[in-house]
């Protein structure tokens, strides 16, 4: 219970300012990335007509997510941006699930990870909007019904980033705190596996899918 709300930080002085690094998050993100790289390497190294177990999982993920992206963005853009969506989904799912392993922590438990991924989606969607529609049509969308709506439209765009990142962060952090508190109260008997199954596996997978889906939808709204 004492470790509730505590963050392991490395503070480095830098020309009068303090640079703060959340060590736990950085190390866990590296672990997630290296597991994903290893998975990708193993799944694609021995390609065959009769696929091995890892190749089946990889093909399933890639085929489903490519179909989803092409359905939302159309044939041409879908092919181009499906790898991004695949990478986003696999990174988020593994990040949310890695907290099940003892001594490991979810990188998404810290607001910085979801916020940076949300900003990534924000910039990509606006870049694509300008590129496909042209700057004039892009700006015209902000004064859509009439000119006075512009502040509300701008706030609406910023609110998307806040909502997408706080949703993931709050779900994962709330789940991990619930597991911590209830495990402490029942002396780690009986309940923790079920809590881990619900908040770790089930909620983690759903939130990863929702985050990916929303990024895709935001891109699709800008393009069309």
């Amino acid at each position: 219970m004492e470790e509730l709300g505590r963050i392991h930080q490395l503070i480095i002085p830098f020309f009068g300012h303090d640079l703060t690094f959340n060590l736990e998050v950085i190390i866990m993100t590296w672990i997630v990335i290296s597991i994903l790289l290893l998975f990708g390497f193993l799944a694609s190294s021995k390609k065959g007509v009769i696929p091995g177990p890892l190749q089946v999982v990889g093909e399933l993920l890639v085929a489903q997510l490519f179909a989803l992206t092409e359905d939302a963005l159309g044939e041409e853009l879908g092919k181009k941006y499906a790898p991004l969506i695949c990478a986003l989904f696999m990174f988020l799912v593994l990040s949310n699930w890695i907290g099940i392993v003892p001594m490991m922590h979810e990188p998404t438990k810290d607001l910085n990870t979801p916020l940076s991924l949300g900003l990534l989606g924000f910039f990509i969607s606006h870049y694509l909007g300008i590129k496909t529609k042209g700057i004039k049509a892009y700006l015209k969308a902000y004064v859509d019904p009439f000119f006075f709506m512009m502040p509300l439209n701008v706030i609406g765009e910023v609110a998307k980033v806040v909502s997408i990142s706080f949703r993931l962060f709050g779900n994962i952090m709330g789940g991990s705190i619930i597991i911590l508190v209830i495990s402490y109260l029942v002396y780690n008997l009986i309940l923790p596996p079920f809590l881990n199954a619900f908040f770790g596996v089930f909620v983690g997978a759903i939130q990863a899918f929702v985050f990916t889906m929303l990024t895709l939808v935001y891109i699709a709204v800008q393009v069309k």
Binding site: G170, N171, I206
Partner: peptide, 24 residues
Amino acid sequence: MLVGQAVSESTGIYSLVVALLLVL
């Protein structure tokens, strides 16, 4: 249903975040 519910839950999550900030 699960996607829709996950999105509808988001304001509850914001309340949880604010409440945790207040408690901690």
